[in-house]
Amino acid sequence: MCHIPGVLAAPKAELWPFWQPQEIKQTSDKPLSVADWQAFLDTYVSPDAQGVNRVAYGDVSKEDKQTLQRHLNALAELDPREWSEAEQQAFWINTYNIAVVNLVLDHYPLDSIKDIRLSFKSLFNAGPWEDKILVVAGKKLSLNDIEHRILRPIWKDARFHFALNCASIGCPNLAKEVYRAESLDEQLERAKREFLSSSRAFSVSGESYRLSSIFNWYWQDFAPEKKQLWRYFQGQGLIEKPVESFSYDYDWDLNVHVSTEGK
């Protein structure tokens, strides 16, 4: 997932009413095929020794880059609000992840997605989170719009944090499999388990507990109050007793495949 680091507080979930799901209509547009996105994932994404899915940005062909851009361009006339809610959720997750990869490719090489500056907003927010980088149903959208004004406030599923990828080592993995409506719940559960089992999410040293900064930025998605955050990890089988405080960490280095770094 993506976040606004640095000088601003993490974004709250604030509904954009236009995107509220509507009555399902058989005559409505259907989701675009994600076959090209799956082909991209098959070709350019692979895990490293630590289990971090890395992207071979430097190896992406001009043709494959153009294919991603065409996919995003085609969303301008597409309106997902009359699809099933699972179709909508899968659509937004895939769209977010495609948009992030496409954004990195537009500016590669770089060390971190935070280095991308598209406007004053990018500078102020230490990254391109608020910049309008795509159009869906005629509405200009930013990455934050998708995450914090559509997905989080409409469906209130904390597992979205484990499915959205911000092109960083510290982020939950960019899944090797596109998200699909018919298997969405299973895929979100897998993404959650995979991240929580990694040291990027949770680690213990003696009596000290270190968490991903995701749980600091968005604690309210995991617990009714921050001092009760430990209960979420207890429910996941990671903590047995109350924990008074955690330390937090996040690695913003680009999730680039090492071969493209000349290593």
Rank of each mutant, 00 (worst) to 15 (best):
C2N: 10
V7D: 12
L8N: 00
A13D: 10
A13L: 04
P17E: 09
Q20H: 08
I24Q: 15
T27F: 02
K30V: 10
L32F: 15
A35R: 12
D36L: 12
Y44F: 13
V45H: 08
S46F: 08
A49H: 08
R54Q: 09
V55F: 12
G58Q: 03
V60F: 08
K62I: 11
T67A: 12
L72G: 04
L75R: 04
E77W: 02
D79R: 02
R81K: 01
R81V: 03
E82K: 06
E87S: 07
Q88M: 07
Q88L: 01
Q89I: 04
A90D: 00
W92R: 08
N97M: 08
N97I: 14
I98T: 05
V100T: 14
V104P: 00
D106V: 07
Y108I: 00
P109N: 08
D115T: 12
S119N: 00
F120Y: 12
F120I: 10
V136T: 03
G138N: 04
H148W: 03
I150Y: 04
P153L: 00
W155Y: 08
A158K: 14
A158S: 14
L164A: 15
L164Y: 12
L164P: 11
S168I: 07
P172Y: 04
E177R: 14
E177G: 00
V178E: 08
Y179W: 07
S183H: 04
S183Q: 01
S183I: 01
L184W: 05
L188S: 06
A191F: 09
F195I: 05
S197N: 15
R200Q: 11
F202E: 05
S203M: 10
S208I: 09
Y209H: 13
W219H: 02
E225V: 13
K227Q: 15
L229W: 08
W230K: 01
Y232I: 10
F233G: 08
L238M: 07
L238Q: 02
E244H: 14
D251Q: 13
D253S: 14
L254H: 02
N255W: 08
V256S: 13
E261Y: 04
